[in-house]
Design a protein around this nucleic acid. Structure first.
Length: 759
DNA sequence: ATTCGCAAAGTTTTT
DNA sequence: CTTTGCGAAT
C-alpha cells in the first residue's frame, strides 16, 4: 500500500514528495498535480514516522483545506494532521494565547460588514465627515496597514495625504473599539498572532518546535503577516514547504505580496526548488493560449508549461453583437451538448470578472431550462436574518460584543429606539462599560425615561435567561433564542413575503446547527460554531457533485477545473477592470486572472465579448480587451459579430464611429416576458421546507418536529416547541405549555407529543 | 419610535 | 439598476 505512494508519481512530483527536511519551494503550474504532491508528501512524512500533530498545512481557502483533508484521508486514513486556512489557524491560536496580546479567549470575530459598522461608529465619534473620507477607503487603508503589520500605534500618514492623516486618527480609535468589545477583524487574526509570536519568544519557539513540518499552499497569495507567521514558526525547525505559482497570484489587492514567493530562495538559501511544469489538465491548444498570454507579464518566474494531452479543439474567440446574444449563444451551446448526450450540466462553467455580469447568463440558462448554480456574493451568513440571530449567540458568547448588542437590542422591535440607545452608549462611554453593562444599569441612567428603562431591563432579563443556555447544544440555544426573543414569531406574523423566506433561511441555520452538534459533541460548542460561521463562505459551499452548470467569478474559479469553460466580457474596463488601468502591476494581476480562468478548462474553452453591453442600466458600446491582442489568434477559432462588423480587430480597423447596420432584432433589447415572478435567487433553499402544515400521524418521527411549531401532549395539552436538540433516539424537545408556567423537556422517541394544527 | 419614502451612492475580487 | 443609508412624516 505504501509503495503505491511513490509509484504513481512523475520524477518531479516524486522529488517534492521525497523531500523531507529543510525548506522546499514547489513552483506548480496550473493542473500540474500540486494538491496531489502535497497530500502525498504529507503521507510520506507520516510514513517516515512524523507524528500527525507535528504537521501543519495552511491554505488560503476552506475549500482547499477540505479538499486536501479529503485526499489525505484516502492516502492515510485517520491521521489528525492540522489543515486549515491561515485565519482559522490563527483564530485557534488566539483562543489559547490571546491574553498575551490583550485579548480574551472568548473574543468575537467581526466579518467585514461588522467591522464596517464599527468603523462607521468610530467615524461618527470622531466627527469625521463620511462624504469627504469614505469609510470604504479608510477601511482598506487600515486593512492594508494590518496586513503589513503596522499597528495602530505605529501608523503614520505620509505627509501631504489628507486621507492618511485621517486614518492615523481613526485607526487607533477603531482598534480601541474592537478591543473594548473583545473583538477582532479578519486582519487582526493574523496581526495579533504575528505580534504574539514576536512579543513572546517562548511561545514562538514552543510552537516552532511543535509544528515541525509546515506546508503553505498558494504561497503567492500570502501577505506580509502570513509570511511572518510562517517564517516565525520555521526558524529553529526550518522545514517549511511552500507551493504556489506566481502566475496565479490574484489577490494583490488584498495585500498579497508576490515578493514572498519570488524571493523565497533568498529567504531560505538552503531551499530545494522543484518545478512542476507538466500539465495534466488541459489540451495543448488551451495551454498554448494561456502560456502566450501570461508571457506578457514582467514580474514572474518563467516556466515551461507543457502537456502530453491531445491537441484538442481550437479555442473559440467570439464577438457577439450584444450581451444577450452572448448569453443565448452560450446557453444554446450548452443545451445542445446536453441534449446530444455528450455532456452533462456539471461539465460547464461560465466565468466573469464581476458578479454583476451574471444576470443575462442566468436568464438565458433559465430560458433553456438548464440547471445552474451560482457561486455568488450574497452569502448565507451575510443575510440579515442570519446575522440577527447569530448576533444573539455572539452576545451570549461574549457579553462585551457591542456590535452584537446593537444588532439585537431592538430586533425584533421592542420599543428601544435611537435615542435610548444613544443614552446607553453615552453612559457606557462615560464609565467604560460595555453596552450590555450599561443596559444593566438602565434604572440608574437619569436621561432615560421610565418606559425606556423598563424596556431595556426586560431585554437584559431576556439576555440573562438566554445565557443560562450557553453550554447547551447549539441547536438548542438557537431554539431558545428564536422562541424567547420573539424573533421567530415576529417573522411569522409579518405580512411581508420576504420574511417568510427569512424563516426558511433560519430553518436552514437550525439544520446547520444540528449538523454541527452532531459533529462536535462536548465543550466550547457555541464558540466553535460561531467561529465557523464567520470564517466560512459561499465558495466553500460550492458543490462539485451537483449536476449543474457553474457560474462564478474568475477569482472564485481558482483551484477548480471543468471540461468546458466560457469566459465572458473580455472588454476594456471589465477585464482588465478599469481600476487596474493606473498601474502596470494591477494590469498584470488582471492578466493573471484571465490566465487562471483559461487554465481551468480541460477540453474546450471559449472567450467572448459583446459589442454592446448593458452597464448600470445603460447600453454602451464596448472596447475589446487589450488581452485579446495578446492571444495567438492565428490558431484560434475567431467569430465576429453577427452583423459582420469586424468589431474588435485592431485599433485603426475599428469602425466604432461608423454605425453598424442594425439587424432586425437588434435595436430593441427587450427581455422576454416571463409568466409570473422569477426568483432571482437560484440556489435558495426556500422551497425545501414548508414546515407549516403537519397532519396528525399515527407514528410521529422525531423529524416531524420543528422549531416553534405547536404540539399537543395528552396530559399537558397544547404547547410550543421552544427548542430542539440531539439526534436519533436522543432527539429531544423543550416545550412551553399553555397550561404550565415553566418548560418541559422530552425525549421525542418516547414522548406522547404530537404535532397539532397550527393556530 | 416606527415607518415610509426618497436620495444617493456605489458597484472587484475574500478570509 | 440595485442596494443602502438617511431624513422626514406619522
Amino acid at each position: 500500500m505504501w509503495s503505491d505512494l511513490l509509484d504513481s508519481l512523475t520524477p518531479a512530483q516524486r522529488e517534492a514528495v521525497e523531500h523531507l527536511e529543510g525548506p522546499l519551494l514547489i513552483l506548480a503550474g496550473p493542473g500540474s498535480g500540486k494538491t496531489r504532491v502535497i497530500t502525498h508528501r504529507i503521507a510520506n512524512l507520516l510514513r517516515h514516522g512524523v507524528p500527525a500533530r507535528a504537521i501543519l498545512a495552511l491554505t488560503f481557502t476552506n475549500k482547499a483545506a477540505d479538499e486536501m483533508r479529503a485526499r489525505l484521508e484516502r492516502l492515510a486514513p485517520g491521521e489528525p494532521v492540522w489543515m486549515s486556512t491561515f485565519h482559522r489557524f490563527c483564530s485557534r491560536l488566539l483562543r489559547q494565547y490571546g491574553p498575551l496580546v490583550g485579548l480574551r479567549e472568548n473574543f468575537t470575530i467581526y466579518d467585514s460588514s461588522d467591522s464596517r459598522n464599527v468603523l462607521r461608529r468610530t467615524l461618527d465619534e470622531l466627527h469625521i465627515d463620511a462624504v469627504l473620507y469614505p469609510p470604504e477607503r479608510i477601511a482598506s487603508a487600515i486593512s492594508w496597514a494590518k496586513n503589513n503589520l503596522i499597528t495602530a500605534e505605529h501608523y503614520q500618514a505620509r505627509p501631504g495625504h489628507p486621507l492618511g492623516s485621517v486614518v492615523a486618527k481613526v485607526y487607533p480609535a477603531y482598534q480601541a473599539r474592537l478591543l473594548a468589545s473583545s473583538a477582532v477583524d479578519f486582519d487582526d487574526l493574523l496581526l495579533h498572532v504575528a505580534s504574539m509570536l514576536r512579543e513572546s519568544p517562548e511561545t514562538r519557539s514552543a510552537l516552532d518546535a511543535r509544528y515541525r513540518y509546515i506546508l503553505v499552499d498558494e504561497y503567492q497569495d500570502t501577505n506580509l503577516a502570513q509570511y511572518t507567521i510562517a517564517r516565525a514558526l520555521s526558524i529553529d525547525v526550518p522545514n517549511l514547504a511552500v507551493t504556489g505559482d506566481p502566475d496565479q497570484s490574484i489577490y494583490g489587492w488584498r495585500g498579497a505580496n508576490l515578493r514572498n514567493i519570488l524571493d523565497f530562495e533568498q529567504d531560505y538559501p538552503a531551499v530545494r526548488v522543484v518545478k512542476l511544469e507538466r500539465n495534466y489538465r488541459s489540451t495543448k491548444r488551451i495551454l498554448r493560449v494561456a502560456d502566450t498570454l501570461i508571457s506578457y507579464n514582467q514580474r514572474r518566474k518563467k516556466k515551461g508549461l507543457y502537456t502530453e494531452n491531445d491537441e484538442g479543439q481550437s479555442v473559440g474567440l467570439l464577438a457577439y453583437a450584444t450581451q444577450r446574444a452572448e448569453a443565448e449563444s452560450i446557453s444554446a451551446y450548452i443545451a445542445e451538448g446536453i441534449r446530444a448526450g455528450r455532456r452533462r450540466p456539471r461539465d460547464f462553467a461560465i466565468f466573469y470578472r464581476v458578479n454583476a455580469l451574471s444576470r443575462s447568463l442566468e436568464f438565458a440558462l433559465r430560458e433553456e431550462g438548464i440547471p445552474y448554480q451560482m457561486v455568488n456574493g450574497l452569502e448565507f451568513y451575510q443575510r440579515r436574518e442570519i446575522k440577527d440571530v447569530l448576533s444573539y449567540l455572539h452576545l451570549i458568547n461574549n457579553p462585551r460584543d457591542d456590535n452584537a448588542f446593537l444588532r439585537v437590542i431592538n430586533t425584533p422591535p421592542r420599543g428601544i429606539g435611537k435615542s435610548t440607545i444613544g443614552r446607553l452608549a453615552e453612559h457606557a462611554a462615560r464609565y467604560q462599560h460595555s453596552l450590555l453593562d450599561a443596559a444593566r444599569e438602565s434604572g440608574l441612567i437619569e436621561s432615560l425615561n421610565k418606559r425606556a428603562a423598563v424596556a431595556v431591563a426586560k431585554f437584559v432579563s431576556l439576555y440573562d435567561r438566554l445565557s443560562l443556555m450557553a453550554a447547551a447544544p447549539v441547536e438548542e440555544v438557537l431554539g431558545h433564542v428564536l422562541s424567547e426573543s420573539g424573533y421567530q414569531q415576529f417573522l411569522r406574523e409579518s405580512e411581508d413575503e420576504e420574511d417568510q423566506e427569512r424563516l426558511a433561511n433560519i430553518e436552514e441555520l437550525l439544520t446547520a446547527a444540528r449538523q454541527f452538534d452532531e459533529n462536535n459533541p462536548g465543550e466550547g460548542r457555541l464558540e466553535t460554531f460561531l467561529e465557523e460561521a464567520c470564517l466560512v463562505n459561499e465558495t466553500d459551499a460550492w458543490q462539485a457533485d451537483d449536476d449543474r452548470v457553474t457560474l462564478m467569478t474568475l477569482h472564485a474559479s481558482k483551484g477548480l477545473e471543468f471540461p468546458v469553460v466560457f469566459i465572458v466580457a473580455l472588454e476594456e474596463g471589465l477585464l482588465p477592470h478599469e481600476r487596474s488601468r493606473e498601474h502596470n502591476e494591477l494590469l498584470e494581476e488582471e492578466r493573471r486572472l484571465l490566465f487562471v480562468g483559461i487554465t481551468r478548462a480541460r477540453e474546450e474553452l471559449q472567450l467572448s465579448l459583446a459589442t454592446y453591453r448593458e452597464f448600470r442600466g445603460q447600453r454602451r458600446r464596448t472596447v475589446p480587451s487589450q488581452f485579446l491582442m495578446e492571444l495567438p489568434r492565428g490558431e484560434m477559432r475567431v467569430v465576429e459579430p453577427s452583423w459582420n462588423d469586424p468589431a474588435w480587430v485592431t485599433e485603426d480597423e475599428m469602425p466604432w464611429e461608423a454605425d453598424a447596420p442594425e439587424t432586425a432584432s437588434e435595436p430593441e433589447i427587450k427581455l422576454p416576458v416571463a409568466s409570473g415572478p422569477i426568483s432571482t435567487t437560484p440556489l435558495t433553499t426556500a422551497a425545501k421546507l414548508h414546515g407549516t402544515e403537519t397532519a396528525e400521524l399515527p407514528h410521529t418521527s422525531p423529524d416531524a418536529f420543528h422549531q416553534g411549531m405547536v404540539v399537543r401532549h395528552p396530559e399537558y395539552g397544547l404547547g410550543k416547541v421552544v427548542a430542539l436538540s440531539g439526534s436519533g433516539a436522543k432527539r429531544s424537545a423543550t416545550i412551553a405549555f399553555a397550561s404550565l408556567a415553566g418548560q418541559k423537556k422530552f425525549m421525542l422517541a418516547q414522548s406522547q407529543l404530537r404535532p397539532a394544527k397550527s393556530l
